[in-house]
């Protein structure tokens, strides 16, 4: 759901860019406070993995494709603010290096996928579910899969809102269309996120922040 140049009006462009910059500013402080030296390469390699996985468009119904987003996975692995930073790096590389996503929409794309898909979904979906569901591997994976699905679904709704505020497509048209197709893409997101988490649990479960740390710290 990388927005190209031309879809958003000036006020939406500026508002989302300011929100993203603010989020990143706060995020940097949180990362500095909560992560240590061993996380440095993990941040880099998680960003690289997400970049690679985002190239892999998978077909969904009706001549449409979707691809992995990775914001929920990164938030579960390294925390929501590290996720925002990672998504920002990926989006910036894609925009500047590969002409994917407009440069005027970069702030909005960071907002939609990083702040909504990564940070908001973490606090809104992941943490409450984590507290509710059993503290087992299955409970953790269920929580993660639902969070992954929701990250794509909710972000697509925000994109629809931005399109309608910008006068690009009316809300009653954009919202059902975006939410409908991304409800399907979200299933792919949930599957990929689960597969990766199962893989990491099998080799280094301690590297998953949300899997290993004591509950109170959340």
């Amino acid at each position: 759901m990388h927005i190209p140049d031309g879809f958003l009006d000036l006020k939406t462009t500026i508002t989302t860019a300011v929100a993203s910059a603010g989020g990143l500013g706060y995020g940097v402080k949180e990362i500095r406070r909560k992560l240590g030296d061993k996380h440095i390469p993990l941040l880099g390699v998680t960003a690289a993995f997400i970049f690679a996985a985002q190239m892999l468009n998978f077909p969904i119904a009706g001549g449409t494709s979707g691809h992995f987003l990775g914001a929920a996975l990164a938030a579960i692995l390294l925390g929501p603010w590290a996720s925002l930073l990672i998504i920002t790096v990926v989006l910036a590389v894609q925009c500047l290096g590969f002409a994917d996503g407009g440069i005027t929409a970069l702030g909005a794309n960071i907002f939609n996928m990083g702040i909504i898909g990564g940070v908001l979904t973490y606090y809104l979906i992941f943490l409450p579910l984590r507290k509710t569901l059993p503290k087992t591997k299955r409970g953790f994976l269920t929580t993660s899969a639902i969070t992954a699905w929701a990250s794509v679904f909710i972000a697509s709704i925000i994109v629809a809102l931005e399109l309608s505020i910008s006068g690009t497509s009316p809300l009653n048209v954009a919202l059902p269309a975006m939410a409908g197709v991304h409800a399907l893409i979200g299933i792919g997101e949930a599957i990929i996120t689960s597969v990766v988490l199962v893989g990491v649990i099998n080799i280094r479960p301690d590297l998953i922040r949300e899997y290993s740390k004591p509950e109170e710290e959340a």
Binding site: M1, L56, G63, S65, A177, M178
Partner: peptide, 26 residues
Amino acid sequence: ASSSPDGLEKVAEDKGFIEKALEEGV
């Protein structure tokens, strides 16, 4: 990887606002 349009692109095509995307990016 699939070369079909992604979710947003497809919606933009179907709902007739794909032409608002700048032909060449900024």
